[in-house]
Simulated assay, not measured.
Amino acid sequence: MSVLTLASAPEDATALQAAEAHHARLAGELAGRVRMLLTAVDRDPSTAEKIHTGLVAFCDRSLLPHAAAEEAALYPAAHGVPEARLLIESLIGEHRCLTALVDALRAAPGPAGAAADARALQVLFEEHMAKENGLVLPLLAMTPEVSLASLLTDMHHRLANDTGSNSAQDHHDTQEGQDMQEGQIEESGGCGGVCGCGGAEETAEPELDVREVPHALRHATVFGALDAVPAGTAMVLVAPHDPLPLLAQIEQRSPGTFAVEYLERGPATWRLRLSHR
């Protein structure tokens, strides 16, 4: 049975889909940053330090405010549904664990010491999102006495107020319910005018292999990884196909910021260097 059939109102079905999409973006961006940290620790300690700092900042401006807004706007209504009460209390406990892991990341003396906590944070957050997507949100969507759409609107207003002082550069980390559109582009446009033919030498640049990343999280994972790449450095993207729609989104999201060089052109594996200008 589809979510649209289960929802008590069309607007709640739409709100449910938007919430799940936002969860996917958060989880993907976190995964991208964590993967970049783990690969940079052994390859480039100075870059790893910057990625570590950026990961903590992302948690402070996106993950933790999201959890706080859920507790203020979403969880009280779910706690009022008898069959969800124990689950909500458990999820609140997971929020405390997420906060403790972020604090551990913040206090870590360096990126190598933070690596285990970063990975634990990613695993816990993904499991947490799965419970919300699979249990809490559908339950609220099909409860006639509850308006999931209104609850999420309240939650988004709280997030907007909490993040209103952020710079425009950080704005994309807290966007709610805005789906990226995947457009086709010509290869020369997607490469930012710096397209190679595959003869580049291997470097110590962090590498992000998205071939095993779930499709729903793949683009958000790349965006999170790119957000962790300091200016003047690069990352290597490994993909199962030529990622032209993704390159179009990257250019739309950050015009002129990344130059793209093809290191390998299939047929089974595509490797691209994305350099932050």
Rank of each mutant, 00 (worst) to 15 (best):
G224Y: 01
A259T: 08
V123H: 04
R273A: 13
E20V: 15
A115F: 04
A18N: 11
E132T: 08
G32M: 05
V3Y: 08
V229I: 13
A200K: 00
H276L: 10
A120K: 10
L208V: 13
L272D: 04
V34E: 05
D44S: 15
L151S: 09
H215L: 13
L217M: 09
P65M: 03
L86M: 10
A120W: 01
E20F: 02
C59N: 05
A231M: 06
V136T: 08
H66G: 01
Y75F: 15
P214W: 01
L272A: 09
G224D: 02
S188Y: 07
R253T: 15
A204Q: 13
S150T: 14
D173T: 10
L4M: 04
P214D: 13
L86C: 05
Q252C: 07
P65N: 03
P255I: 08
A27E: 07
R85E: 14
G177P: 03
T53Q: 12
A216R: 11
Y262Q: 04
V34S: 08
N166L: 15
P214R: 05
V222I: 15
G177Y: 08
D117F: 08
G256V: 04
D179S: 12
P45Q: 10
S275F: 07
S90E: 06
S147A: 07
H215G: 12
E11G: 07
G134K: 00
A24E: 10
D170Q: 06
P230W: 02
L64T: 07
A84H: 11
P45C: 10
S8H: 09
A116Y: 00
R35V: 09
A108M: 12
E132M: 05
E176Y: 14
R33G: 13
E126L: 09
E126C: 04
G28Q: 05
S254M: 07
G80M: 11
H52R: 07
H79P: 02
P109K: 07
H171T: 12
T269W: 00
E251C: 01
R271T: 09
A116D: 15
L274W: 04
T53M: 00
Q122R: 11
Q175T: 14
